[in-house]
């Protein structure tokens, strides 16, 4: 506990001429004090400090073993299990060691410090506002026209920088939410780019299909079902839409846009696995259960002279979940 500076240090001259190792005369002196630690609050918390010391030592040795084990595991390109276990052992034991040192081998306390209320005094408020208002605000208000001009310039800066920041992020929606790539005469095409013929689809099966120019398209995806072999009429006006039992619906759920990927043959229903909306095929994919608010749009099909399944036209309404600009059809 003694200050060794400045006494008995051999003098070597530095290039600057000041003796090396000698204290900078402008530095404040370092003084040490011996603080009285006899108060009971300074006693360690451990009942048996020797035993706690030994336990803590064991923690640190186990930590060392864990970290060394991680090193070994790493060089041996060991499994994730060994790497993680050795690292976890090291970290946990290190943590236990440090924490037990802090909890049991350091002053038990309690200590206190004063706390000032946050609420300021009227005097403090008065002085602050005096400076703020009389020195600053009045000076600005005196030349209000300058403040307005500065504000106008800053506002223009804000507006013109908002454009590259926001407007350039993406195209405007325009009509893209209303349209898919299905057109009059589009071939019903599977994911392997094969145009689907009537003979390809067994009764009771489901295939995900696309228009031939948008295979894999997220919005155009459609389920082609073949529940029976005679025409299916889901509602009036759709008498010709499902020839020979081939029926197609948009695969984009009208609830939150997930692919309506599960076909329950027994009940002739389509299930969306995200939020469990159920759609009844024979009533035109009317939602019968779950949160979906609207039926899946039905794609009108026809079968051409060579047996290819094709679209009579595109969807007659926007597919997928709703959006503000979408009209109020139910």
């Amino acid at each position: 506990m003694s200050d060794e500076h400045g006494s008995g240090v051999p003098v070597n001259l530095s290039p600057g001429g000041r003796p090396l190792g000698q204290r900078d005369p402008h530095a404040s002196p370092v003084q040490r004090v011996q603080v009285d630690l006899s108060a009971p609050q300074f006693q360690v918390a451990a009942k048996n400090p020797k035993r706690t010391e030994r336990t803590t030592l064991v923690f640190f040795l186990l930590a060392l073993a864990g970290f060394a084990g991680f090193g070994a595991a790493y060089t041996q390109n060991a499994s994730n299990f060994l790497l993680g276990l050795s690292m976890a052992l090291g970290l946990l034991m290190f943590g236990f060691g440090v924490a037990s040192w802090g909890m049991f081998l350091m002053p038990r306390g309690p200590f206190e410090e004063p706390r000032a209320l946050m609420q300021t005094t009227p005097e403090e408020k008065r002085l602050f506002l005096g400076d703020f208002e009389s020195r600053g605000k009045v000076a600005i208000e005196r030349r209000g026209f300058l403040a307005k001009a500065m504000g106008a310039a800053a506002a223009v800066l804000g507006i013109v920088t908002a454009f590259p920041l926001i407007r350039s992020l993406g195209p405007l929606p325009k009509k893209s939410l209303y349209r898919t790539k299905w057109r009059k005469g589009s071939y019903v095409t599977d994911i392997n780019n094969r145009r689907v013929k009537v003979d390809d689809i067994d009764v009771g099966s489901m295939v995900t299909v696309f228009p031939q120019d948008d295979v894999g398209g997220a919005i155009s995806q459609t389920v082609l079902l073949h529940p029976q072999t005679t025409d299916i009429v889901t509602m009036t006006g759709r008498e010709t839409w499902a020839p020979q039992g081939f029926i197609a619906f948009s695969k984009v759920c009208t609830h939150a846009g997930c692919p309506v990927g599960l076909y329950e043959q027994a009940t002739e229903q389509l299930l969306c696995p995200c939020h469990q909306s159920l759609f009844d095929i024979y009533s035109g994919a009317e939602p019968v259960f779950g949160p979906a608010p609207r039926p899946l749009p039905q794609l009108p099909l026809y079968i051409d002279s060579r047996g290819y399944i094709r679209a009579q036209t595109g969807y007659d309404e926007p597919v997928g979940p709703g959006f503000w600009e979408r009209g109020g059809t139910t």
Binding site: H255, A256, S277, P287, G290, P291, A292, P293, R294, P321, G322, F323, W324, E325, R326, G327, G328, T329, T330
Partner: peptide, 14 residues
């Protein structure tokens, strides 16, 4: 499975 339909607009279920 509710949605609010307004003339020309809607508030979707989600």
């Amino acid at each position: 499975s509710w949605e609010i339909h307004l003339p020309g607009h809607m508030i979707p279920n989600a």
